[in-house]
């Protein structure tokens, strides 16, 4: 079960609950294929550095999960089929990347507690 990290950008015209619903769809897709979600971050509406599909902003969402290799293929197909998502990128996390991700999670959780 290798760890993957996906960042995807959703269409800015979506309403809040449409964004949540889209995210839930992808989370359920991973869970259905015996994957495990280890971290989720909602970066919210951010300005894109260049226009994608004539849009200047987008809802960013980060998802870190553990799954088998075959799951990723139809996970990507799922993204391709969904029009709400305008850009996505799945990255495999190696040893040093995993250590960095854990440090980042700890840092974010302490910040969240501090606020």
């Amino acid at each position: 079960m290798t760890t993957y990290e996906t960042v995807f950008i959703m269409n800015p015209v979506l309403s809040e609950d449409q964004v949540k619903e889209a995210v839930k769809k992808f989370v359920n897709h991973i869970k259905a294929n015996k994957g495990k979600i280890t971290n989720e971050e909602n970066w919210g509406l951010k300005k894109l550095k260049y226009t994608i599909q004539k849009k200047k902003t987008g809802f960013y969402y980060l998802m870190e999960f553990q799954a088998d290799g075959q799951v990723i293929n139809d996970f990507e197909v799922e993204f391709k089929r969904d029009e709400r998502v305008i850009r996505w990128q799945t990255v495999k996390l190696e040893k040093s990347a995993l250590a960095y991700a854990d440090r980042r999670k700890k840092k974010l959780s302490t910040n969240a507690k501090a606020e």
């Binding site: 960042v7 950008i9 550095k49 260049y50 960013y60 850009r87 990128q89």
Partner: peptide, 13 residues
């Protein structure tokens, strides 16, 4: 290049 892919960095600026 990955950051450029998800529009965190521009290709040309």
């Amino acid at each position: 290049k990955r950051a450029r892919q998800i529009a965190l960095l521009p290709y040309v600026a």
